[in-house]
């Protein structure tokens, strides 16, 4: 993994220097242009390419990250305005030696085809199961309504999330 150093920015006048808290680590950004989105800074300046860019306009959800625990489109967040806030990306949800339970459920249920939408869906599913461990199918659908997938037709994604939720409930000895 690359460390959190940023390459030199372009020659624009409005340059900024700031530090972001990404996955618990302090990541310095130097010579960033003020108008850069969090998505751009994560991918292009910090080298964290797990978060995807498919539209840059809030429509597809492939850039979903957690900002102070809330799922947002990182393409719509001004990176410099995320200073002092806790940013968690899909890398931060992934254990060092494999997959987390939701990621494993996506694999087991065949919910990944091209995989471009998957990181965003994993982040969206993570907050759903945190807030609503017993989410209904309708709640799962609403939770991923901002995540476009052009391959799977969603059926397997929904069953993967429902499967992960059920496995968590069983592990906790619930019903």
């Amino acid at each position: 993994m690359r460390n959190c150093e940023t390459p030199a920015g372009g020659g624009d006048e409005l340059l900024a220097q700031y530090t972001l808290n990404v996955n618990g680590k302090a990541c310095g950004v130097t010579k960033g242009r003020v108008e850069e989105s969090l998505l751009y800074v994560l991918r292009e300046r910090l080298g964290m390419t797990g978060t995807k860019n498919a539209c840059d306009q809030g429509e597809c959800g492939s850039c979903t990250v957690l900002l102070d625990g809330m799922a947002v489109c990182s393409c719509l967040v001004l990176a410099a305005s995320a200073v002092g806030r806790e940013i968690v990306t899909v890398e931060g949800l992934t254990p060092p030696d494999g997959l987390n339970d939701i990621q494993q459920a996506f694999v087991d249920h065949g919910a990944v085809q091209c995989g471009f939408c998957t990181p965003g869906l994993i982040v969206a599913a993570e907050v759903l199961l945190r807030d609503r461990p017993d989410a209904s199918t309708l709640e799962i659908k609403e939770a991923i309504s901002g995540n476009l997938c052009r391959c799977t037709g969603y059926g397997r994604v929904i069953s993967a999330i429902a499967g992960a939720a059920e496995a968590r409930r069983e592990a906790q000895g619930g019903c």
């Binding site: 003020v34 306009q57 809030g58 719509l76």
Partner: peptide, 20 residues
């Protein structure tokens, strides 16, 4: 932000009000 991403708008100043 969409306009900024698509370079339809290049802000010369940005004031963040979301932490007031």
């Amino acid at each position: 932000m969409v306009e900024v991403n698509y370079s339809q708008r290049r802000p010369s100043t940005v004031i963040s009000i979301d932490r007031i």
